[in-house]
Amino acid sequence: MEKNYFKKLIDLYFINRYSDKTEKRAQLWLIKESGEKEKEIYLRDIWDNLDVKTDADIYQQLDKVKKRAGITVVPKVSFRTIIWRAAMIFLPLMVSATFLYKLLLPVEMLSFETHAGEQKEISLPDGTVVWLNACSKITYPEKFSERERLVTLDGEAYFAVEKSESIKFIVNAKDISIEVLGTMFNVRAYENEESATTTLTTGKVAVYTDSDETFILEPDQQLVYNIKNHSSRLNKVNVNDNDWKSGVLSFQEMNIVEIFRDLERRFDVTITVNKIMSSDKYSMKFVNKEDLTNILDVLSDLSGEFNYEVKNKTVIIK
């Protein structure tokens, strides 16, 4: 039973991100010689149970590797090859639409992850419904405890929380946590973004930030917490402005490069920026499910800063 510490540690470390200090500590432990055998068993378990969706850029990766390995890359692809390739990619896609782990921990933790270009609706054990935006991940226990309903979010999600008189629902996100009893709200806290944003649709929520502040939000209010300089700003918003679930794409006070990062997630493309862009901030909203080139055209006209070229899943900004 004591060896279970090894398993727990490895499982938790593998699926989560922690502070730099904690990750380093766990990494040192991992490569330390003692307990090598046990660690090996549990790592192998992870490998055997890992169910991963084929990456959308798998053929770009393959071409890179072929080039480096000295295998000739045939530039022209026949129609048959395209069909065959498409079948190879889509088959695994259907088998595992999301990247789902079942951890073998005492309290079973479930984890759902979305890839770029993907959105997903999930029902939690208490009846709460969560819409997960692209490149996001939510972790929650298979069964909530009797004292609280705690979920962890990396990325963006909209929550419609099932009402409970006494059991709080807590969203633990990067540098903020949000507590409610039953309401609808949106949380956006991507690992690689500078701010964590909470937007309330109905009811009331309490937001706690890493810098000792507590905010009680009213409907149509939005709290933007800046992770870098630990400042908070309360905005009045129209919640329909950011209804990403129904295809609305809106940017609020974002510079061009930040908008590019968002488009990458939304459209599952890689945007390579080959020039220095200004940090001017823009606010805009696309409501009709415009495609990527329409949006890039608008951005290009508006900023007058760049031209672009689309090649397969890559956009080059010049």
Partner: peptide
């Protein structure tokens, strides 16, 4: 100790 540190890491802010 590492397990504890991981769990403390993931606690809600407050």
């Amino acid at each position: 100790a590492i397990l504890l540190e991981m769990h403390i890491n993931k606690m809600p802010v407050q």
